[in-house]
Nucleic acid binder design. Structure first.
Length: 296
RNA sequence: GGUGGGAUAUCCAAGUGGCUAAAGGAUGCAGACUGUAAAUCUGUCGAGUUUCACUCUUCAAGCGUUCGAAUCGCUUUCCCACCA
């Protein structure tokens, strides 16, 4: 396989075997790795996120990991910035780029616009938030409809986050939702200039299930519980995305309960499996796949 | 051996005569996706079919009361608790 300025994207659901595959791929192709994972960006969250240890990276440079403290907010716009810097530096050192990760929304930024850059003024944000707090969706949806010339926009009007976000945008720029939306769709992906080749890794369902349970057990052996205790005692407050990460959320709750470690393993594994399900749905339509590889 | 409590769909669990194929969870399946995305949200979830509708079989098992029962009575089986 020749690497001719293409940007290789390797994805697949959690625990499918991306890390190993990508490192081998990078070694073969004189490449560096850009992680595309919403949890690996957090420092001190290593075990529960299955972050590859420096020793296991086999000399391959990894980017976009350990970017922020667990107390800090991180979002797709920050990922795009970090990834752009990383990719620029790899390209300028005449190496190839392998993007690896399973965070669908972040991954989408390589193919489509994912943010529109509209600045939401504080007062607009406060207004919408307070209406939601007071009267919920019943208060917001009519406002959104009237902000769109009386037509209900084609969004999930039962999802508070979607509705609030849409309404904030309309109010912030004084335009209809249709306008905002058509402008958004016309934007380019921030990584438009690169030619992409996207590989989806897959694995037999039963095999994957087994790997997930084994991996969770291994995480506990490696000290997941201590890692969580460390986070809780060293940070006053963990960011939403850090404390909701699979493995962390369950362990935080587990520490307050009095069930067995076996129960914790089951719960983490179960929730990991749920994530797999969502990821598979995402990969079906949201991201263009060039090649599927079944690992065994 | 005695007394009391229980047995509800894949699992947990409401329901104490009609509005019940049966609340609510969970799991499963399907789906959405513009700044928390490992997030947030939606649909579906007894069986079958000609699937915006119709049919069939359900609430441990059997029998009974009733126009009508998951709900009331009796018997049997199993589980739990306490007493012997």
């Amino acid at each position: 396989m020749s690497m001719d300025g293409k940007l290789y994207v390797i994805t697949g659901c959690t625990a499918v075997g991306k890390t190993d595959y990508a490192i081998n791929f990078a070694i073969k192709n004189n490449a560096e790795i850009v992680s595309c994972d919403s949890s690996l960006v957090y420092k001190h969250m290593d075990i529960g996120t299955a972050k590859p240890k420096p020793v296991d990276r086999r000399g391959i440079e990894h980017h976009c990991m350990d970017l922020v403290e667990p107390s800090e907010k991180f979002d797709v716009s920050m990922f795009i910035e970090a990834a752009q810097i990383a990719i620029d530096s790899i390209v300028s050192s005449r190496k190839n780029v392998v993007v690896v990760g399973g965070s669908g929304f972040y991954l989408k930024s390589f193919y489509r616009p994912v943010i529109d850059g509209i600045k939401i003024p504080r007062n607009v944000s406060d207004l919408v938030n307070s209406i939601y707090a007071k009267s919920g969706l019943d208060g917001l949806v009519p406002m959104l409809i009237s902000a769109n010339d009386g037509i209900c926009p084609p969004i999930d009007t039962k999802n508070p986050r979607r509705v609030m976000s849409a309404l904030k945008r309309c109010l912030a720029c004084g335009r209809t939702f249709d306008d905002v939306q058509s402008n958004f769709i016309s934007l380019d992906s921030p990584f438009k200039q690169y030619q992409k080749y996207t590989i989806l890794l897959e694995r037999d369902r039963e095999d994957l299930k087994l790997r997930i349970w084994e991996r969770t057990k291994k995480m506990l052996c490696m000290g997941l519980i201590d890692e969580v205790k460390f986070l809780l005692s060293n940070y006053d407050q963990l960011s939403d995305s850090a404390k909701n990460a699979i493995g962390y959320r369950e362990t935080i709750n587990w520490l307050k309960s009095s069930t067995t470690e076996g129960a914790l393993i089951d719960e983490i594994s179960q929730n990991t499996l749920k994530l797999v399900k969502k990821q598979k749905t995402w990969f079906k339509k949201q991201i263009p796949i060039d090649e599927k590889i079944i690992l065994r």
